[in-house]
């Protein structure tokens, strides 16, 4: 456990701020650069960094791979579900105006974009982490002379 000590300490130090930054990017995307795509990727990259330093099994204890498909489906359904809700409220598919009609500050649009970006963030985060788990979890079969 004492090997790569500096790396591990630094990763522990950075882990929480990266997650916090991802949340900031997710929820501040309306006002500055950012949005669901970036936030999902940054959120996933925090766990990938953790896995690089502490091993895949430790990370998979924190975020089990079996949970991630549910996140993927939930994210996509949140996106599509927002569209279906607007459909039932009398608007077009993904026409967020009907979520809060006659609001002077376009609250409906803001609400719709918030939900949609949340769905995108969840789907991207879980997809990226799933892809990483499956790549890193596979046994390499290359002899060391190839290096």
């Amino acid at each position: 456990m004492m090997d790569h000590l500096i790396l591990r300490v630094m990763i522990k130090l950075f882990f929480a701020p990266i997650l916090l930054f991802a949340l900031y990017v997710q929820f501040h995307g309306d006002y500055g650069p950012g949005g669901g795509f970036q936030a999902g990727v940054i959120f996933a990259s925090a766990f990938i960094l953790f896995a690089l330093g502490f091993g895949l099994r430790t990370t998979q204890k924190a975020v089990p791979p079996s949970v991630l498909p549910y996140f993927m489906v939930t994210g996509l359904l949140l996106y599509a579900g927002t569209g279906v809700v607007t459909l039932f409220l009398g608007g077009n598919f993904l026409d967020y105006y009907v979520l809060a009609p006659n609001s002077h500050h376009n609250a409906g649009q803001h609400m719709g974009i918030f939900l949609v970006e949340l769905g995108v963030g969840m789907a991207v985060f879980s997809s990226m982490l799933t892809i990483f788990y499956y790549f890193a979890g596979r046994e390499p079969e290359i002899s060391d002379e190839d290096w």
């Binding site: 009398g90 105006y97 009609p101």
Partner: peptide, 8 residues
């Protein structure tokens, strides 16, 4: 402006 985006 409301009727620009959506018109109930």
């Amino acid at each position: 402006w409301t009727h620009l985006t959506f018109r109930p």
